[in-house]
């Protein structure tokens, strides 16, 4: 199932929650929406699942063959950011209720509930009321309720929040399995390390606008066009020797034997290394790719004016 979002906007009174966002999620991919609180991720997701309507723009869904289809409840699963189940009812009652609302027959939902409860180690707690479960376990039950009807499109708003690292890993594996089964997954998250390991593509948002989108490498090249190198050398000597080289935009000592070098995007790396070696002996160097977390923080900082700037 493919999602195409074309210049979608949503405004709540004086706030523009989503501002002309365009996005394409291909079938069988995991796509992540990234951004700080209030970036517009949940607003975008809520429009996608039909809880609200866009003020401008269009959202279209198509099947694997590219034929446009209407998104129906049986096609997709939605795990909202503001989520919960009936606290005074048991885990099993909640899951059976959701399964029945989804139109599943007992012969279908009973083995699925059993499978997922076992997977998340909740089998012996299925008769307990939800309120007796920890927040993390409640999250797991919520995720199970989302996946019971085996949807082809899975939309998860903050699926990792409230989970400990072990359970985050469980969820990560579940999402990978969904991808293997050819399902489309759209998720929003703050856990950059997990998203980096999981998502095929991502959309970085801030204040309702798209800052960058694509694969991690594409985002890197969009947000960080300059090349960063870690160079092993005499840091003190390098600072004086390389000061006059124009293609070096920034030189930051890491310690006595290592510096971080930012080269201008126009610099030719192949020709510059012999010149640098002449001026200061180089023991080794490596291109450093900034992680998603670093890119995210840098970009968000740059997109928002600081207090002093304001």
């Amino acid at each position: 199932m493919n999602i195409t979002i074309d210049r979608v906007s949503k405004r709540y009174k004086t706030v523009t929650a989503v501002d002309a966002i365009s996005l394409h999620v291909s079938s069988g991919q995991i796509h992540a929406l990234l951004g700080p609180n209030g970036a517009g991720k949940s607003s975008l997701v809520r429009m996608l699942v039909g809880l609200t309507s866009p003020d401008n723009g269009t959202i279209s869904i198509s099947n694997e063959q590219g034929a446009e289809i209407q998104l129906r409840p049986e096609h997709f699963a939605y795990l909202p950011e503001d989520r919960g189940l009936y606290q005074d009812r048991s885990v099993n009652d909640n899951l059976v209720y959701i399964a029945k609302l989804r139109g599943l027959d007992k012969s279908v939902y009973a083995p699925r509930i059993e499978h997922w409860l076992k997977y998340f180690e909740l089998t012996d707690r299925q008769q307990e009321p939800m309120r007796q479960l920890s927040k993390g376990n409640q999250q797991k039950v919520q995720l199970i309720s989302t996946l019971l009807h085996d949807p082809s499109l899975v939309i998860l708003d903050e699926p990792f929040s409230g989970l400990d690292p072990v359970n985050q890993e469980h969820v990560l594996n579940v999402l990978r399995d969904l991808k293997k089964q050819g399902k489309t997954v759209l998720l929003s998250a703050h856990q950059m390390a997990l998203v980096e390991r999981l998502a095929d593509k991502m959309l970085l948002m801030s204040e309702g606008r798209a800052l960058a989108q694509g694969t991690l490498d594409e985002i890197r090249s969009t947000l960080q066009p300059k090349r960063l190198y870690r160079v092993q050398c005499d840091a003190f000597k390098a600072q004086t020797a390389w000061a006059s080289i124009e293609q070096i935009e920034c030189l930051t000592p890491i310690d006595e034997h290592e510096v971080e070098l930012t080269l201008d995007s126009s610099a030719n790396a192949a020709s510059i290394w012999p010149r640098l070696s002449e001026l200061c002996e180089i023991q080794g160097f490596a291109l450093r790719k900034p992680g998603l977390h670093e890119l995210y923080l840098d970009t968000i900082r740059q997109s928002k004016p600081t207090r002093e700037e304001q």
Binding site: V49, G50, L51, F76, L79, P80, D82, R83, G84, Y86
Partner: peptide
Amino acid sequence: RVTEQLLT
């Protein structure tokens, strides 16, 4: 917070 999931 049961509402959103059910409304889909």
